[in-house]
């Protein structure tokens, strides 16, 4: 596990940093991309795939970014779509325990504390609509206007998603799972 140091990678960059070579882009945006990957896939192996695919795609395509914000937007959108693609694909995500009794459950990303696990777990259990908005707002530190732009919806819709998503998070963190 990496040390718990918040990188500057998710602050809006005022200073134009272009161009960077790919490994520098990886260093700068690794946490952001990996976070999106973990939040939007079912297991750690898938998240690893998304992480690698996003930066490999970046490396191979060398998208022409007009600004650092532009590059960040490219990475976020690619990561979201890539996560969706990986989650949908039928061959990457099959994890069959060798022995159901003793096998570890699907390898999940683990955080340092149970509280953090519970919080992120609740986020991951939300429908994608809310999950994405909440993730980008709270973990990628994007302002509502940028999220709206990235998701192609109005700012009002993003605010609604955040508000409803927060409500759902609260429900999930307080209650049990099934009421049977």
């Amino acid at each position: 596990m990496e040390s718990v140091i918040r990188q500057g990678d998710d602050r809006p960059a005022e200073v134009p940093l272009l161009p960077l070579d790919t490994s520098e882009v990886v260093a700068r945006y690794e946490s952001m991309v990996y976070g999106i990957a973990v939040a939007h896939t079912r297991c750690r192996g898938d998240a690893d795939d998304v992480y690698q695919d996003v930066f490999l795609t970046y490396h191979r395509r060398q998208p022409e970014c007009r600004s650092e914000e532009h590059r960040k937007a490219w990475l976020i959108t690619t990561a979201l779509n890539c996560a969706r693609s990986v989650t949908r694909s039928s061959w990457r995500t099959r994890v069959v325990p060798l022995n159901p009794e003793t096998a570890e459950p699907t390898d999940q990303f683990r955080f340092a504390t149970e509280e953090q696990d519970a919080l992120f777990g609740a986020l991951r259990s939300l429908p994608e609509t809310y999950r994405t908005a909440l993730y980008l707002f709270y973990f990628a530190d994007l302002p509502v206007a940028r999220i709206a732009e990235l998701l192609g919806v109005g700012a009002a819709a993003v605010k609604m998603r955040l508000s409803r998503g927060r409500g759902l998070m609260r429900d999930r963190l307080q209650g049990g799972y099934f009421d049977e």
Partner: peptide
């Protein structure tokens, strides 16, 4: 807690 979580999200 968000910052703490975000900081751990690395491959």
């Amino acid at each position: 807690i968000f910052a703490e979580i975000a900081g751990q999200l690395r491959p």
